[in-house]
Write a protein that binds this DNA or RNA. Structure first.
Length: 474
RNA sequence: GGCGCCGUACCCAAGCGGUAAGGGAGAGGUCUGCAAAACCUUUAUGCACCGGUUCGAAUCCGGUCGGCGCCUCCA
């Protein structure tokens, strides 16, 4: 049936058709590395990971670019704030460069923990300053800019289509309803391309430019970097839903003003993770990081599974109860698949040519779900139904699960191959287990239960399965 | 003030005009010394509420109530 994606530009489900038949180009807005990513941020990266996995599953080659914002992103509204990096540096006594490096590494660690495939290109804003300057020069030559109060501004009134993505009707916007209006601006919605003046002094990350020593505005970096790596017209641009109104709207204005042509074909936006009835936000202080989850004993993949249970365009309610249910579900899948794997003698089909028609039909259902605007909850339902389907052999169940895991990214193959740890003779635990087995053999169940309780006190849970006694840490 | 989205069982959540997917939690059963696992059964005549359109509505239209987001920090 073909992949259908909801394009924010036009607000409709559209048949996906890439510019180049064989390679899909994606640009996704990356983190601003002044703090840890919170799990709401991470939800968006998981959604983008699913997107690229689905494209790969459907046979496309993917070129996925993500930026690291390490300069130019201000703390406050209206281009009057302080650079987030500089603020964090000032508060911690470190340099902005140290802050950037620290949180960039933390971000990579999160990505790895969540089994997110690392984009083909990860590029720092500070490595692309010249490209940004060149782009601003181009805009200047074409008459889209003006200089005021030391800063270079983009004049949105020169760009007739401004606000098309966000459906902004500028007449009805309340400029300054919430923020301080920058009096240097001709139009309150103009935005800064290059700063040389900030009311916060001591900016340490600065570069020479035709307009004086300074630093780039936030929006220009995404335009410059995406075009550098993907060309002046590419397939998909992703980001959080909160970027529609300002960031992406401004990116479009800059990019299309500079090239005079259409820039991005499909705009995909991930919805928010909601905590305590409001969106998770660093500025509001109500946020959790992956590390918080790990410290509470969750596996990062529990969170990944949790994200899969909701559609990327719907708000998802976070609660510990929901996360528990995701964890249990994930562990159940592993258990089920592992059991099938063992019963099938670890022999699974090599490819989908050798599987039954029933299994082929299930793959088709799975594909249909994902082609329907990346409907992961539906795809998960296909997995669950398949695992309970008596018409599918154990070996095929393993094969299909692993096939589906190419999208879900739950590391199933690794999980089912985890051997139960063999105990050695001199181990306290192993002695107790042996004694318990001995007691059971002698039908002295009272003694057996005493041993079981002792093991439990040591953090070991034993289970008697048809294949013998197994144990695990609890 | 403007714009957008949402309200489905105890919890999470699909569904987008044809008679309520899936998971978690709970309950009952088979099996097992007991647990556990596995398997089976079970939990919304109902989708915020009120009208309307239709042979047929959770799905479309209008209204009401409640919630969320955006309107230059935000994924």
């Amino acid at each position: 049936m073909g992949l259908k994606l909801f394009n924010t530009m036009g607000r409709e489900l559209q048949e996906f058709s890439p510019i180049n038949k064989n390679e899909v180009t994606i640009y996704a807005c990356g983190p601003t590395v002044y703090n840890f990513a919170h799990i709401g941020n991470l939800r968006t990266y998981i959604f983008e990971d699913i997107l690229r996995r689905v494209l790969t599953f459907l046979g496309y080659k993917v070129k996925h670019v993500i930026n690291i914002t390490d300069v130019g992103h201000l703390t406050d509204d209206g281009d009057c704030g302080e650079d987030k990096m500089e603020k964090s540096a000032r508060e911690t006594g470190k340099t902005a460069w140290e802050i950037a490096e620290y949180y960039t590494n933390a971000f990579f660690k999160d990505i790895e923990n969540l089994n997110i495939i690392k984009p083909e290109i990860v590029s720092k804003a500070t490595d692309n300053i010249q490209e940004m300057i060149d782009l601003i020069k181009k805009l200047e030559e074409k008459g889209f800019t003006y200089i005021s109060g030391g800063n270079v501004y983009f004049s949105i009134d020169k760009f007739p289509d401004y606000g098309k993505l966000a459906l902004l009707d500028r007449q009805k916007l309340h400029a300054g309803a919430r923020i301080e209006i920058d009096s240097n601006k001709k139009n309150p919605y103009d935005f800064v391309l290059w700063f040389t003046k900030s009311k916060f002094g001591n900016q340490t990350m600065t570069w020479d430019s035709p307009w004086g020593r300074g630093y780039p505005g936030w929006h220009i970096e995404c335009s410059a970097m995406s075009m550098k790596f993907l060309g002046e017209n590419f397939d998909i641009h992703c980001g959080g839903i909160d970027h529609i109104n300002v960031h992406h709207t401004n990116e479009i204005a800059q990019s299309e003003a500079a090239t005079g042509k259409k820039w991005v074909n499909y705009w995909l936006h991930g919805e928010f993770l909601v905590l305590n009835k409001s969106k998770m936000a660093k500025s509001a202080g109500n946020f959790l990081t992956l590390t918080d989850l790990i410290q509470k004993g969750y596996d990062p993949l529990d969170y990944r599974y949790f994200c899969l249970t909701g559609h990327y365009r719907s708000q998802l309610q976070f609660s510990w109860e929901s996360l528990d249910s995701a964890r249990n579900a994930r562990l159940n899948i592993i258990e089920k698949v592992k059991l099938c794997y063992e019963e099938a003698g670890k022999n699974i089909p090599e490819n989908n040519l050798t599987i039954s028609d029933n299994a082929k039909q299930i793959i088709s259902n799975f594909k249909d779900a994902l082609e329907d605007d990346l409907n992961c909850p539906k795809a998960l339902a296909v997995l669950w139904t398949m695992l309970k389907d008596a018409k599918i052999s154990q070996a095929e169940k393993v094969f299909l699960s692993l096939e589906f895991d190419k999208i879900f990214g739950l590391s199933l193959l690794k999980e089912i191959n985890k051997e139960s740890v063999k105990y050695s003779i001199d181990d306290e635990v192993s002695i107790l287990i042996k004694e318990r087995e001995e007691a059971r053999k002698n039908r002295d169940f009272k003694l057996a239960d005493v041993k079981r309780d002792k093991l439990k006190a040591l953090g070991i849970e034993v289970k008697d399965t048809p294949n013998g006694t197994t144990w695990k840490h609890i």
